[in-house]
Each structure stands twice: as structure tokens, then as C-alpha cells.
């Protein structure tokens, strides 16, 4: 059974692509054949985060238009077995993707025996975002502890519950997960940032994980290596926990309390 996951948020810049890359890589590392698809037509970026930008020959739109086969367009990851990337096109035509076209590609991936298809949604609630979530079985809503991001997440949760294939056809609803990113435990404890509990209280969706604000995320994207592969980093470990929870394991939350400071730093700051 193939599972289709959408990584979405409404707001831009909260970490959808970082999350798509790490979740897809994590699933493949756990032995599941996984494809990750960039739905951001016109603003391709997943290829860079996955470090395969120089290997893109054909893209998602080429496959939809029948200009290339799915096998030609799928980029096989060289580091992780069973991980494939389908890049977005750089075309400016935002109508390049259609519901039938997307369905065909997803069906072909299912027939190819993929266990997971991770759909990296563009920001906004326009066509690209709608298509990314339309056929989803599960949704990861990425949110920063920040007012505009939480408000947009709530809008997305509403759309997932009303405008998806499952909703329209009155099937079992999409399983929703909240993933909090860029979390700064020390700021939350100081009352400068909404806490995970505050966000859960407002959005009322089960928590998949909390990714701490971490320099390792930028380091990873600089290098084109999903941050989950950096096993020494806090963010990488937090993504690994999230993948485990997605697969039904129970893991305690980590990196949600501030590091204790010594007496010296407490007295003199820094």
C-alpha cells in the first residue's frame, strides 16, 4: 500500500522543503521505497536541498505532458537506497499541472511499488498547493511558533478537511500531523515565543515533532544534504524522531527545554 504524504503550511519560509527532504530521506533510511516530489512549479528548490540540482534532466511537468517517462525523470539518490526525487519545472506556466496529470504520476509511482510519496507543497493556497494536498492520505502541517504561520496553518488544516479528494468523496479524512519548526526553547521559556503547548491548544492536531532552531539546518542546505543525515545535530535527531513517530513508534519529545546555564553565565548574561 502506497501512502501519499503532503508537507504543507500555507505560509512560505517555514521549512516545508527542508522537512520534505528530511522526512523522505528518513523514510528511505528506514527501508521504505520513497519518492519526493516538488510541486512548486516555477520555483524549483527541492533539488538543491536534496543536492541533486545538477542531475535534473526531466521534471514533473515533462512527465505530466508525456515528454519524458517517469523513470527518466526520477532522480535516484546516490547516498540513500530507495530514495528518488522528482524535480519541479522552471516553467512560468502555473497551469502546467492538472489534477489528471498529477493523478497519473501518483498512480504510476504506486504501480512501481513505492511505499511513500512525499509531496512538497508550494506556499500559498493556489493551484500548486491544492494539487500537492489533493490526493494525500496524510498531511504534515509545518508551523513556526509565530502568529502568521499558525494562522496560515489553521487555514491549511481547514482546506485539508474540506477540499481534498478524501473530503470531496466523503472518505476517511486525511490524517493530520503538526510539525513545529524553528523552535527556540529558551525563548519559549522566557515568554518571548509561543510554546509547543500553546500551538497545540490553538491548532488541536496531533504533534509529529518539534525541530529546534539550529545552525545545522543551514549547514545542511549549503551542502545539499538533508539535515536528517547529520546524525550529530539536534535538528537531524528531531527529524529522525518525527519519522519514527510517523511510522507509529512512540518517542519522547527532545530539544524542547532550554539548556541549563551555569552560575557565571546566569549572572553576567551570554
Amino acid at each position: 500500500m502506497t501512502k501519499i504524504l503532503v508537507v504543507t503550511s500555507g505560509k512560505g519560509g517555514v521549512g516545508k522543503t527542508t522537512t520534505s527532504a528530511s522526512i523522505a530521506t528518513g523514510l528511505a533510511l528506514r527501508g521504505h521505497k520513497t519518492a519526493v516530489i516538488d510541486f512548486d512549479v516555477g520555483l524549483r528548490n527541492l533539488d538543491l536541498i536534496m543536492g541533486v540540482e545538477r542531475r535534473v534532466v526531466y521534471d514533473f511537468v515533462n512527465v505530466v505532458n508525456g515528454e519524458a517517462s517517469l523513470n527518466q525523470a526520477l532522480i535516484k539518490d546516490k547516498r540513500v537506497e530507495g530514495l528518488y526525487v522528482l524535480a519541479a519545472s522552471q516553467t512560468k506556466d502555473k497551469d502546467a499541472l492538472t489534477e489528471e496529470g498529477v493523478k497519473k504520476v501518483l498512480d504510476d509511482l504506486k504501480a512501481d511499488g513505492f511505499d511513500y510519496i512525499v509531496c512538497d507543497s508550494p506556499a500559498g493556497i493556489e493551484k500548486g498547493a491544492q494539487l500537492a494536498m489533493y490526493f494525500a492520505d496524510e498531511a504534515i502541517v509545518v508551523s513556526n511558533p509565530e502568529v502568521s504561520s499558525v494562522r496560515d496553518s489553521d487555514r491549511m488544516l481547514g482546506l485539508l478537511a474540506s477540499k481534498s479528494y478524501r473530503a470531496v468523496n466523503k472518505l476517511e479524512p486525511i490524517r493530520q500531523h503538526l510539525l513545529v519548526t524553528r523552535y527556540a526553547p529558551n525563548r519559549a521559556e522566557a515568554g518571548e515565543m509561543m510554546s509547543v503547548d500553546d500551538m497545540l491548544e490553538i491548532l488541536a492536531v496531533p504533534l509529529l515533532g518539534v525541530i529546534p532552531e539550529s545552525p545545522s539546518v543551514l549547514n545542511a542546505s549549503n551542502a545539499g544534504q538533508p539535515v536528517i543525515m547529520d546524525k550529530t545535530s539536534d535538528a537531524g535527531q528531531a527529524y529522525e524522531d518525527a519519522v519514527a513517530r510517523l511510522l507509529g513508534e512512540e518517542r519522547p519529545l527532545r530539544f524542547i527545554t532550554a539548556e541549563k546555564k551555569g552560575l557565571f553565565s546566569r549572572l553576567f548574561g551570554k
Partner: peptide
């Protein structure tokens, strides 16, 4: 300010 953020969000949402 976090408390303020939460209250504003609860109302608008």
C-alpha cells in the same frame, strides 16, 4: 509577548 500572541491568535482563528 508569547501570551499576547496566543490570545490574538485564539480570537482571530
Amino acid at each position: 509577548s508569547a501570551k499576547l500572541a496566543k490570545e490574538r491568535l485564539q480570537i482571530i482563528i
